[in-house]
Amino acid sequence: MVQTAPSSAPAVPRRRRRKTVLTVVVIAVLAGLFALRLWVIEPVGVDLDSMEPTLAPGSIAFVLKTEQARSDAQLGDLVVFPSPADETPVIKRVVAEAGQQIEVRDALLYVDSIPVREPFVDHSTIDGTFYPLTEVPPGTVFVMGDNREQSIDSRDFGPLPLDSIEGVVVWSFNPSFK
């Protein structure tokens, strides 16, 4: 029987190898989540009441940030874009697309002269509100908050350029218990 001389390199204990593998896996998962948040899905906190009752203050909206989502924003979508006032993220609803005509008559939204059914808007709080007939220019959308009385939106800053849309809300929840 031949005996081999002991190796000069110390053997790495199994426990240490497992710990190293576990550390590498955790780092990879965290890096993947960071990349996912950075380029695909991003949580956005809702601080203001301009989207109530759809998104109450304290809600968290998850925003799909892919190029496809941004370029496919369509009627009814909640989109995120930098505020024209201070660049903070803002969430509003797309109510009209390029080429459509928009008007608000006595708090009711009309698109192409057809009244839009909006069950998420409390029309009693905005009775007597008007916005003149306006055509949405190419390359833009018209956005409004669901809480029309409190919302600063396209009625104030004009149609939103499509290239300023950062993403589309795909899911939201309100963690507070009211």
Rank of each mutant, 00 (worst) to 15 (best):
R15M: 04
P89F: 01
D163G: 05
D163C: 07
E42F: 04
V94L: 10
V26E: 04
K65Q: 15
F142R: 00
E149L: 04
R14N: 14
R37P: 05
V94D: 05
F173Y: 13
V29R: 03
P53W: 03
Q150L: 10
A61T: 00
V63A: 01
G32E: 07
A107K: 02
D146V: 00
V168S: 08
E118S: 00
H123L: 09
Q74K: 13
A98I: 07
P10I: 12
I41N: 00
S172A: 15
P175Q: 10
V21E: 05
D106R: 07
M51L: 06
T23F: 06
T54F: 09
W39E: 11
G128I: 04
P137F: 10
S172N: 11
V94E: 09
F177C: 11
T140Y: 09
T134W: 09
Q68W: 13
V94A: 11
S59F: 02
A11Q: 15
P132R: 12
G158M: 05
S83C: 06
R15I: 08
P82C: 11
T23R: 15
D163N: 14
F120H: 11
V168C: 07
R117W: 05
D153Q: 05
H123K: 12
N174M: 02
G158W: 05
H123V: 03
S71E: 15
A69Q: 08
R155W: 00
I60K: 12
T88Q: 12
M1H: 12
R16Y: 09
A9C: 10
P159N: 01
S83R: 01
P138W: 06
V44D: 00
P13I: 04
Q101G: 11
I114R: 12
P138D: 14
L162P: 01
V24L: 15
V29M: 08
F81Q: 00
L162F: 05
Y131W: 14
E97H: 06
D106P: 10
E149A: 13
F62P: 03
M1Y: 12
A73C: 04
F173P: 01
S8N: 14
E135I: 11
N174W: 06
D146E: 08
L160P: 00
P10G: 12
V80I: 01
I102A: 06
L133T: 12
L48C: 07
R70Y: 13
P132Q: 13
E42R: 03
V79I: 15
Q74G: 14
